[in-house]
Amino acid sequence: MTAARPEPVVVALAGVPSLGGLYARGVAGSVRPGRSRTVRSDDLPRTRLHVGGVSPDPAHLTDYQRLVGETGSDVLPAGFVHVLAFPVATALMVRGEFPLPLLGMVHLANHVEQRRPLTVTDELDIEVHAEGLAAHRSGVSVDLVATVRADDDVAWVGRSTYLAKGYQLSDGDAADDDRPRESPDAPTAPPTADAPLAPTARWRLAADTGRRYAAVSGDQNPIHTNPLAAKAFGFPRAIAHGMYTAARALAEVGPRARGEAFTWDVTFAKPVLLPSTVDVRIADDGAGHAFRVWSSRSGRTHLEGAVRPLP
């Protein structure tokens, strides 16, 4: 599939685009009349968006670290790099050539390779492309891959898998798999998936959790910030950003346990409605630290994943 793809076209942006403007375009694009709900696997644009010389803002970094519970180090948390790259990925998704609508996209999974630490003094080159258009039982999924370099060296690679509900892949495999539910190297699931498990932490997520993460990440998707908008997309209340809960789990593992180079995998099973209280378990499973977040009340899993050292 990929072998047949033409050479990529790199489009350089002058700077990290503003998410506000992108959303306006995204919303407009999503409701574009006559948009086809059937896409082909080679519909993905060859475009790679590139932004160079991105300099992390210390105040922004501090706000992020405080919000997700990271220590106030000069080292950029892996989730913070995701936040820096996210507008670029969004810019790619609102381009006319992108076959899926931005609005209503669901984050299924996220895979990050932190190959070496990035710090607040690094100048970052961010490049984003899309790949892996695939059938999913309730739509079509796509991977947005961001590669972040410092000093011409790849330091961070993030792959976010999103689902466009209600779309079909005309030439894909039957949509019987739910591939993104687990990354290839995800941890073995806890023994009894939804049985009570001893938590190591408990998060009390307030109603404004979505708005607070939106303010720091720029991801103003209304399903996180506005209960009415969430209802429009089928959720009873606003839901927490997946990357917020994943970032808190990463912080919970902590800098010592995850090391300088690591992978950070997370699969989002069930959205966290706000407000709510969730139980968390971080455990050393021999290969690294697995984590799981579940509803304190129902015991249903919200997300699970692992942080493992990179050789």
């Binding site: 938590p199 932490a201 408990r202 919970e252 968390v280």
Partner: peptide, 14 residues
């Protein structure tokens, strides 16, 4: 506990 959000009693219960 700031790092876990679990109260002391909840921790001790574990």
């Amino acid at each position: 506990e700031p790092r876990t959000g679990l109260s002391m009693g909840e921790h001790q219960a574990l």
